[in-house]
Design a binder for these strands. Structure first.
Lengths: 218, 218
DNA sequence: TTATTATTTTTGGCATACCAAAAAGATAAT
DNA sequence: ATTATCTTTTTGGTATGCCAAAAATAATAA
């Protein structure tokens, strides 16, 4: 298997099993990588042989220790590049994902560590995702999705789980950026939409959008 | 053909026909890319179909206008990255080539122009090679190889044509870096070796090494 | 010019990464 | 429990990028 192919699978499995214990379905991998399910079945069989994943037929996959290690390394490269592009090269948070997607495959430890060092070894990227350190150690947060909030009141935006430019531009338009304070006014029982105030303006958040916003009560 | 494959061929053809009119042999391309000649024949046939090169069987290849454009773009990316790695990220001139070899395939105009702008739009890279500007315009120099010098006296080191760490480390050891002034003492008729003085120390340069050093009389 | 050597091309083959469609297996719904 | 649906796997097939060995074509030397 080509290194790039391996990296894309491992990164995807890692991202899809965030809590890192859950098994990931072929379908979800296929969706994320825009691949035919048949291709994914084949890919997982090979990754199992390579001992990067434990793949149980018709059930799901999870990373082995060595797969996890590699995945964390790719995630580190991706998130360091995203941060570098945003902080040092002036790219917007809606632009960095696509570029980092390519840069992440350049595997040079010295390079990534140098970038990290210039940035002051950051622990979070522009989307609020934690950045593994050089040893693969990663911050664990227990923030919740906006869609999971049960009580009204003040929250802080801590991250996003969708990195598409469309979504990020939409958030930016409403000042819903990382670190912003929001005040939840209503949680509609009917359709689960949320009305909140951000920078003194009222915004109505759809359930779909609320799924992709990570917050912390304050 | 995969973009990366195309880029590697075009860049190689460009580099091998420096004066840009000469046709390039399959063998030389195969050597540079570490490919079997059979593979190169096949590759050139496809590039001809794609109208990136004019490939005449059993004779040689040269770039078309569109091939030249693409080649210059890749060369620009490569050399901008080399310069950025050296100047901004502290890598040695013996390290930058290998890393740039991978980074060059990340095709993002805004990114490269941003790096170039940070560097002050440089026209030469750490090996003394000219960097095409955003429009593909490239400085033409009429420097000569150290091996082509006919008269003794003072010269300035303007570049190198071999980018291997081994060679570059060897040069550095003798202070034969870009911008250095050298004084040619002897040109041996017997074996074409050259004795010169650099930083007050005498160095004996083999014909092979002299082939890879670019100088200008002063 | 002819023989020798080097280069290029052809041929046949292999591995990777993909897909579409059919078959098998799980899950959910009645 | 049986159907209906959704997911996964199998099967058969394609395109790309590569190579080794043989055949054809240049280039060089005798």
């Amino acid at each position: 298997m080509r290194p790039e192919t391996i990296e894309n699978y491992l990164k995807t499995i890692y991202n899809l099993s965030s809590n890192n214990t859950a098994v990931v379905s072929n379908q979800k991998i296929a969706d994320k990588l825009s691949l035919n399910p048949a291709t994914v079945t084949e890919g997982l069989r090979k990754l199992h042989e390579l001992k990067y994943v434990i793949y149980e037929k018709s059930y799901g996959s999870r990373l082995t220790t060595s797969g996890s290690k590699l995945a964390l390394d790719i995630v580190r490269r991706h998130r360091i590049w995203e941060t570098y592009l945003a902080k040092e090269l002036g790219f917007g948070w809606d632009e960095v994902h696509a570029i980092a997607e390519e840069l992440e495959h350049v595997n040079n430890v010295k390079l990534i560590n140098k970038l990290a060092s210039i940035l002051g070894n950051p622990t979070y990227d522009p989307h609020g995702d934690p950045i593994p350190d050089a040893k693969g150690k990663i911050q664990k947060s227990n923030f919740i999705k906006l869609s999971e909030t049960k009580v009204k009141g003040n929250y802080k935006v801590m991250g996003v789980t969708d990195h598409s430019p469309t979504f990020l531009k939409y958030l930016e338009k409403h000042q819903l950026i990382i670190g912003a304070t929001i005040n939840i006014k209503t949680i509609e029982d009917f359709d689960n939409s949320i009305v909140l105030v951000c920078q003194k303006k009222e915004v109505n958040i759809s359930p779909k959008a609320a799924e992709c916003i990570i917050v912390q009560p304050i």
